[in-house]
């Protein structure tokens, strides 16, 4: 645990020196295993104009277990669970795909990339994914409506 905190602190330093565009990390030294991240919807995405709050939770076993990413702001996205958890779990965030050298900064980049280009092949919300594939207009419309409704 002490080692985890040490590494989290180092990673925060790294992230704050090189924060991905449109992101802001609220870091609490008293509770450094929970990061609050404020993120602007990327310009080139349907989420543009939205402000999303995310939580990044580090398990006690970090870095041997992956951090957990959850959207506190509701978002219409194939890779974010449409429930009160808003969890995003794919790619390197999967427990069986995670490896210790992965860094939080790349997790943040992954989140941003996914807002620009959802990964429909690894979707948690199958219906949103199929809408994204088959009816992109409809998907974009709903996504934008949700941005207006929840992410202003």
């Amino acid at each position: 645990m002490a080692a985890a905190r040490k590494r989290i602190l180092k990673e925060y330093t790294e992230c704050s020196n090189d924060t991905p565009p449109g992101m802001k990390i609220n870091f609490d030294e008293q509770n450094m295993t929970e990061w609050e991240i404020l993120m602007d919807g990327p310009e080139q995405s349907v989420y543009s104009g939205g402000h999303f709050k995310l939580r990044l939770t580090f398990p006690n076993e970090y870095p041997f277990k992956p951090p957990v990413v959850s959207f506190k702001t509701k978002i219409y996205h194939p890779n974010v669970s449409n429930d009160d958890k808003g969890s995003m779990c794919l790619g390197m965030l999967r427990p069986d795909a995670w490896k210790p050298p992965n860094k939080v900064i790349s997790v943040l980049h992954l989140v941003r990339t996914l807002l620009i280009e959802p990964n429909v092949d690894d979707a948690i919300e199958a219906s949103i994914a199929s809408e994204f594939k088959d009816n992109k207009k409809g998907f974009e419309k709903t996504a934008k409506e949700w941005v207006k409704q929840y992410a202003k």
Binding site: A3, K6, R7, K10, E11, P63, P100, P101
Partner: peptide, 11 residues
């Protein structure tokens, strides 16, 4: 850069 770290603990 003349540095190296253990990629697990990042020390």
């Amino acid at each position: 850069d003349g540095r190296a770290e253990c990629s697990i603990c990042m020390d």
